[in-house]
């Protein structure tokens, strides 16, 4: 049984986001890049399976981004340091912003890369990724991969358990105010939600060892079945972040405050 984790490199959540000169992507120089924290949940889960089950023979991480000369990809390094065996780095314009902002396109490219890898080394029983990456916050990757690879997909999983026979899995996913128990056959794709597995902090020796783990470079443009593919959506522009508005202080009697607050949360902030 082999496990694949998808790990994307994204700007640190604390970073200041600036739009670059072209207006089509964000400025990455001087921005700390990290492995996406949701993808990291999948990495942790993958490592736990690799460590905990003798029948899991390999855990592979796949990342995508500009290249090809980017062995410094933070997501790959983080995943390898956490205990994943080896990496595959898919590179090219197709998987680099602004094209990268089209997550269905990313799914198509990665599906092609996964098929190519599986043709060589066999099927992945389980593919894990974050429920959404913190940069695009789209969350389309997992379900779309499931569709493109003709496998069941489970979104926002907070718990997964692989059956002893390695043929099925049971998962708990977070729905809207509900928690759903799902049973699926393997191979499957699972998108990971917080609570699944607290990611470990890699120790220094493991970070060092990770530098020596093999990383295969794959050019997105050369993948079979992708000839002529391009982004179908067009990024018109990114708008720089609005300066954070000062706190809006509500006035009046408590009852007025309460109704005004609920109104604002609903129609202005749109969070309830």
């Amino acid at each position: 049984m082999r496990v694949l984790v998808i790990a994307r490199t994204v700007p640190d959540s604390r970073a200041t986001i600036r739009v670059n000169a072209s207006g089509g992507a964000i400025e990455t120089t001087g921005v700390a890049m990290i492995c996406d924290p949701f993808d990291e949940l999948g990495v942790e889960q993958g490592v736990r399976l690799r460590e905990g089950r003798p029948d899991v023979t390999e855990a592979v991480v796949m990342s995508a981004g500009p290249g090809p000369a980017t062995p410094q990809d933070q997501a790959l390094r983080a995943a390898l340091a956490m205990g994943i065996d080896r990496g595959i780095y898919v590179h090219g314009d197709l998987v680099t912003p602004p094209a990268r902002y089209d997550e269905l396109l990313l799914a198509r490219v990665l599906a092609a890369a996964i098929k190519a890898e599986e043709a060589k080394n066999g099927e992945f029983a389980l593919i894990l990724c974050g429920k959404a990456a913190i940069d695009t916050d789209a969350g389309e990757l997992g379900p779309a991969l499931g569709e493109l690879l003709n496998r069941p997909s489970i979104g926002a999983a907070t718990k997964i358990e692989i059956g002893a026979d390695a043929k099925s899995l049971k998962a708990t996913r977070r729905g809207d105010g509900v928690s759903e128990a799902i049973e699926a056959s393997l191979p499957a794709v699972v998108s990971c939600e917080k609570g699944l597995a607290e990611p470990r902090f890699a120790s220094l020796p493991n970070i060092m060892k990770a530098k020596k783990k093999p990383v295969e470079m794959v050019s997105a443009a050369d993948l079979p079945g992708l000839a002529g593919i391009k982004a179908t959506t067009k990024v018109v522009k990114l708008s720089p972040p609005a300066p954070r508005a000062p706190c809006k202080m509500l006035a009046g009697e408590p009852a007025q405050m309460a109704s005004e607050l609920v109104r604002l949360l609903r129609s202005e902030a749109k969070v309830i």
Binding site: R200, F201, A202, S203, L204, P205, N206
Partner: peptide, 8 residues
């Protein structure tokens, strides 16, 4: 130092 850097 040993605990943090070597054993995490």
């Amino acid at each position: 130092r040993h605990l943090v850097m070597e054993r995490g």
